[in-house]
Design a protein around this nucleic acid. Sequence first.
DNA 1: TTGAAAGCGCTAACAC
DNA 2: GTGTTAGCGCTTTCAA
Lengths: 342, 342
Amino acid sequence: MDRYVSRPVTPPTLADVAEVAGVSRQTVSNAINNPDLLREDTLARVQEAIDQLGYLPNRAARNLRTRASQLIGLCLPRAHEGARSALLDRFVRTLVESSRGAGYHVLLFSTDEDDPFAGYDDLLRSTAVDAFIVPETHLGNDVVEWLMGRRAKFVAFGRPWGNPHATYPWVDIDTAKGSEAATRHLIDRGHTKIAWIGWRKGSVLGEERRLGWARTMHAAGLPMTGLASRVEDIVTSGRAAAEALLDESSPTAFVCATDALAMGVLNALDARGLKVGIDVAVVGYGDSPVSQMVPGGLTTIRQPLEDAAVALVEALESLLSFPPTIAAGLMLEPKLIVRGSS
Amino acid sequence: MDRYVSRPVTPPTLADVAEVAGVSRQTVSNAINNPDLLREDTLARVQEAIDQLGYLPNRAARNLRTRASQLIGLCLPRAHEGARSALLDRFVRTLVESSRGAGYHVLLFSTDEDDPFAGYDDLLRSTAVDAFIVPETHLGNDVVEWLMGRRAKFVAFGRPWGNPHATYPWVDIDTAKGSEAATRHLIDRGHTKIAWIGWRKGSVLGEERRLGWARTMHAAGLPMTGLASRVEDIVTSGRAAAEALLDESSPTAFVCATDALAMGVLNALDARGLKVGIDVAVVGYGDSPVSQMVPGGLTTIRQPLEDAAVALVEALESLLSFPPTIAAGLMLEPKLIVRGSS
DNA sequence: TTGAAAGCGCTAACAC
DNA sequence: GTGTTAGCGCTTTCAA
């Protein structure tokens, strides 16, 4: 009586299925892992029992036996400067979906302030994950080297900045190509005085993005002196920088390292009665939600985060297959999204 | 020779530690799980061996034995309407951090288009997680009921909308209180014609937020006719709604169901030459990055997502402790963030 | 093609 | 206090 009401739900085991199907446990195991080995009618009978009981192999037992967890560890980077949060959303969501396709789940973990390796170390030593996805390699945290020292499996989201011939799999977005596309777009529109507003020195990503602008300007034979500015990544700084640049060199277009900075430029232009997209063109970076909310829209650069996530999982699959294969580094290109501001 | 170079890193086991410490395996296990049982010097010796080898219990083995995985499943809701992505970031980040404090990791999974239970079912039947955190109960997906039917452990992020006396633990944010605070704030500022721009009917959350406005207006004896509008949650719709309301009833203030809608209002005011925060006040909802980027800033409602995450983990801890305790439902209040637009 | 035995690494129950 | 024994549920030999 009581058992139907309050019996704790203990999922069926291999043995339960075997009993129902009238075969041995191993045969059930084979039905799941090597169905080819079974005769057709046996397989069908076992399958029926599996369906009837709603059987699914116990993860812990399987993990223990196969020395694999079907789990991929992703360290949630500490809260970023700026509004990079929306990116994380797009990235993680796709990561989870494509991992599922590959038979893996994503395990999230955070890391200690003091010890950046602690989280990785624990998971590794307790064999809790099969591999890691390591984001933000540009920050110069030496997680990658540390993991290699431990012979841990991982795929990096970010090129090997230090040594270009690193022997680990990675996927990255060629961020310089973004500002390059932005600048070329403005040149095509007829602009010749194109200003750059970027991050303070010291950010690898910031320097890369700046490089895209500089490279393109140089190739087009356009002047750059007095047209570059490096500030903190907040709206007010972007605005101040724009004011200064307008006073100094009156550019007709701005390329910015982030959408937040571009918003600052928009504010500055607005305050001066300059019409965005008509008097002065502005391009941001990131395709954050803001860029669509601004009246007329903000031309910006969209990073292929979804593609990156898919590529990372593919690289992970080769890494975890037998024999393991180290996928070649893959560089993806960001995309210019033209809206009203240019 | 070779072994130091390419030997695969097999983490040490309990037996290894036991051997080094010169005790039995069980004693090592006790040293970890019931240290009180050991004599001080034995404990010290075992601890030393543990440190020396860098031992950490194998997860799979422990999970198998204890019938627990120390994993909490979180279903990533499908991409939302609107820019709710930043929320996810704040929420998930805190969730991961406080889970870590409780000895748990967060396992992310997604769900099938067709079968909303599939993801839950798989994890449950394979005993891959100890409990779930179920977001978005307001969407009327009956995940909660399904889980209860399965006697699965979970904590809901969202009150039991259907039956107020549900016997499962939940944490929610009283979203109506947000628009209530926004409206009261505007009344305090001397406004009497306060318009509402919300979502189309059918959204539980949307109706709640509207209720906050209506309730407060009613209590203050202020008129509401011709002052409410329900549109799609995008900037252009917000703008159109604002135009219409301005033409019709010339409100001096707007309360919006989202920041995106508020942005639309800002655009409309701008187009008419009305000064935001001076001629007309505007309040958004969500404290999205946009609200800080707008010149002067957008007054908005901030949801205590971090608090919610912490509370959810606390509820989870009581649920997973022995004996299990079902924490009382907890309602958190959002907070008004006053910026230049009001 | 199917079945029996062994054991992955750990912890719960008991003996010493 | 410490060690011995058993077994969690599964897969991997190896026999039949």
